[in-house]
Computed example of a mutant assay.
Amino acid sequence: MSEQVIPSADASSLPISIPCRDGVALGGHLWLAGTNRPEGSVIINPATGVLARYYHRYAQFLAGHGFDVLTYDYRGIGQSRPQRMRDSGYRWRDWGQRDFDAALLMMAAYRRSGPLMVVGHSVGGFLPGLAESAPMIDRMLTVGAQYAWWGDYMPGRRAALFLKWHVAMAAMTAIYGYFPGRRLGWLEDLPKGVANEWSFRGRRFERSHPKAEREAVLRRMVAVKASILAVAVSDDELGTMPAIRRALSYYTGAQRVSVLLRPADFGRDAIGHFGLFHDRYASSFWIDTLFWLREGRNPWPSRALPLEKSSHP
C-alpha cells in the first residue's frame, strides 16, 4: 500500500544534547514539523553500531510530513562516543535503561501535540521496554527488531554469522578492549560491554542482567502498553520471524501485530537488515509507515502473521 505523496525536504534539524540520569550526555538532533500542531512526536532508535545520521533522511521525511522527530546516538557511538573507547563500561542494557529513557523523557517534555511514538530498528526496536518511562509510549513501529540470539539467525547463514558476531567479535574485543568495527568494515566501533552482551547473549535476554535485576527488567517489559507494529523482511538474516516473535513475546501488555514483507513487494531483488531506511524506499515503505504513525493502521494487512508461536521458552 502506497499513498502517492512527494517526500518533503523542507525540514531542518537542531543539534541537541540529551542528559542521562548517570551524567552521560548524548548527541542528537531534533527535527521539527513546520506546524504548531504536529501529527505526533517520534523517537528513532538506531540499530547496533549504526550512526544516527543513517536515519536522518527518514527523520527529515517524517518532519516534512508533520511529525516532530528526535534522532540520537547511543553512548559509545557517533556523537555520543567517549574520548577513550578501550575498556568502556557501557553495556547494551544501558542503551535502553539510560539512553532511550533519557531520550523519551526529553521528547515527552517537548511534545506539542499528538501521540508519543518510537521507530526502532534492530535492537532499537527491543530496547524501549528496558526504560522505566516506557509506559509513556503510545505507539511503536519496529523493523527487524530482535536481541541477536544466534539460534534465530537465518538457517542458511547461521554458522557464518555465529563465527562473525559470537566468535570473531568476542576475540577482537578481548584483544582491543573494545570492538574495532570501523577498522574491519563491520559497522561502527562498539564499547566492550555492548560487544560482549551481543557475543555472549543467550536464548533469554534477561539472563545477561544480574540475577537480582531480572524480575524488575521483565516487569518493565510487561508494563509497556503501546501498540506495536513489528516489521520483518523475508531476506533479513538477523531479524527473522522467530527472532521477531521472540522479542515481541516479552511485550505481553502491548497490542502487537507482526508483518512479513518481501523484496518483491517493493519491486526489489533484496532488502536485507538495513535497506528499508535507505531513501530509495522514500516513495514506498516510508510513505506506508505514515498510515501507522498517523492513524495506528497497519498498511500491510495482507502480510500480517500470527504471534502464537512466541519462541519464548
Score class of each variant (00 low, 15 high):
A134D: 09
G66R: 00
A59E: 01
F266C: 07
L62A: 00
G40N: 07
M169V: 05
D87F: 14
V231C: 05
G89I: 05
S284E: 08
Y251L: 11
H312Q: 11
L14S: 11
D94T: 12
V42I: 15
D235F: 15
H273K: 06
P15Q: 13
A168K: 06
H278G: 13
P155H: 15
A168G: 00
G177H: 06
I77N: 03
L62F: 03
R297A: 04
Y251T: 08
M172N: 09
D152V: 06
Y110T: 10
Y54Q: 09
W300K: 02
V217A: 15
V194P: 04
G27D: 14
M154L: 15
F162C: 11
L238T: 00
F67W: 00
Y178T: 01
G275M: 09
R81T: 11
P313E: 11
M107Q: 15
R256M: 09
H312F: 09
G296T: 02
V259L: 04
L51F: 08
R183Q: 12
H121P: 00
A171L: 15
F277T: 06
R75S: 12
A232Y: 05
S249H: 06
T252L: 05
P301C: 10
D235W: 14
G34C: 08
A304K: 09
G272P: 10
M85I: 06
V224L: 15
E295L: 00
L62I: 01
V222T: 14
L30F: 14
V5N: 04
P115I: 13
E197D: 12
E197W: 10
L104N: 10
R303C: 12
A131K: 06
L104D: 10
G275D: 14
A264C: 05
L105R: 15
A131D: 10
A11G: 11
A103D: 10
R37P: 04
M85A: 05
F100P: 02
R21P: 01
L62K: 03
K192L: 08
W286N: 01
S12D: 14
P128F: 03
I175H: 15
H65E: 12
L229S: 00
P263R: 11
M136W: 10
M85S: 07
P263F: 13
M136I: 06
M169D: 05
V119R: 00
E132M: 11
V42F: 07
A171T: 08
T71Q: 01
R303M: 08
A63R: 03
P210V: 12
A148W: 09
H312P: 02
I228S: 03
V123P: 00
G239W: 02
P46Q: 06
W150T: 08
A159M: 07
K192Y: 09
W286C: 05
A47M: 03
W292Y: 01
V50T: 13
S8Q: 00
G177S: 11
S258E: 08
L187A: 08
W186V: 13
A216N: 10
A212F: 12
N196G: 03
A102L: 13
M172D: 05
